[in-house]
Design a protein around this nucleic acid. Structure first.
Lengths: 226, 226
DNA sequence: CCGAATTTTCAACAAATCTTCAGTTTTTTT
DNA sequence: AAAAAAACTGAAGATTTGTTGAAAATTCGG
């Protein structure tokens, strides 16, 4: 799963094997990882490290996973994923009411844990991830969707690319040459008229008569104003 | 509490306040909630909605909670939790003989109700627990089984792998290249068309005409929406 | 080794999208 | 006011992409 990251994960478990395994795997995946081996230090580490996700073993000496989860949820804005053994099914109920966000049952596949982590990050920090909000536009590049005033626009791939580019560069005048270059690619052979054609179809889909988001700057290009 | 989704709850009470409160809270918990305000419509709703749990007020105009419970238990496979006022203690006895599974005495804390609900689900649908639940999908990776709306899908190994991957990464657009890479392996030599072929067979088996879980995002890939 | 299930390839088809083009309108220049 | 330049527009044709049925190749249990 390729993605620009910088997401931080705290792994808490008293079994060094597991911690090492996860640390290695997650770092390899591009996360910044810190570890802790018991509840107390986990909480301290969370305060200092400010992770986005905490992976927390239920069974630990001293303060158990539930306690830690409860405390974390109270003070920090993190997603908590718990690791629980198969036969501790009851823990599920207990933990869910204590605010854990998700569960993975041991033994688990790394792929599965990874998928959960991404799901959690997406859920908890939608803004940090592919989702960009600019004025009335909401661009979710991971879904390949753009919402306008809350409604999903039905766009063809090129329309999507063009609107994405325009909105992300709102306020600037973008010449047809630049647009062609950035959206169609440097090696596009055809005429600049195709930009005009696509601008029109975007205007249609935005019903841009009244608000005029896409302004044409004669002789220079187009500019999106919000 | 994303991952515990797929459970459906029907809330029946003639007091709109309570219904609204529960609806909001339970949806926030990740349940799929439907409501009814009297016995008759509750039974109709249960038939259609097929909830896992029914939360049922004892005191209602027309058919009372006991009647409804009796009828539900006769025809549907659901857990029934009754809401009963403090001074209707006798109701407790009455209800037990009529097949209700649990009681919550008004006024109750939401936390308490929640714990009861989870307990009920665990009890009534033990097989559903311990595995990954995402929307209407229940993935049991150990058994290599996926249930959809409670029914086991008959999948070939590749179909299983593909659906597993898609569901675990729901919400994201997954390109054929990525799918090929993750499901078939980085060294698969063949054409991307094979992904299309398998998508079709999954759609067939999901009877995906109406609900369209697997959306094709033209030019980009496929995305599972729940 | 055989037969069934599964995987993979292939080609025809359908549909969405892209691109071009020419005629029209709008704006600017002379 | 006429001419020129730039942008707009609708539609047709070309191209790309996805869907589908079926055949060929492969795998796997017995």
């Amino acid at each position: 799963m390729q993605q620009l990251q910088g997401f931080k994960i705290l792994v808490v478990d008293d079994e060094p094997h597991i911690v090492q395994f996860l640390e290695f795997g997650l770092e390899n995946e591009g996360f910044e990882v810190r570890t802790a081996f018991d509840g107390m230090s986990a909480i301290a580490a969370a305060k200092e490290f400010q992770p986005h996700v905490v992976i927390l073993d239920v069974m630990m000496p001293g303060m158990d996973g539930f306690e830690v989860c409860k405390m974390l949820k109270k003070t920090e804005n993190v997603a908590v994923i718990m690791l629980t053994a198969k036969d501790e099914v009851d823990d599920r109920v207990k933990g869910l009411t204590l605010g854990a966000d998700d569960y993975v049952i041991k033994p688990f596949s790394f792929e599965e844990l990874l998928a959960r982590i991404y799901a959690r990050i997406r859920n908890q920090f939608p803004n940090l991830f592919g989702e960009v909000v600019v004025g009335p536009f909401q661009i979710d590049d991971r879904r390949k969707e753009i919402k306008f005033d809350g409604r999903v626009l039905e766009l063809s791939p090129t329309e999507y690319g063009l609107l994405h580019f325009l909105v992300l560069n709102h306020g600037l005048v973008l010449s047809k040459a630049v647009i062609l270059d950035k959206v169609w690619g440097y090696d596009f052979g055809g005429d600049e008229n195709i930009v005009e054609v696509y601008i029109r179809s975007l205007r249609d889909k935005l019903q841009d008569k009244d608000r005029q988001f896409i302004k044409t700057v004669r002789g220079a290009g187009y500019r999106v104003d919000l």
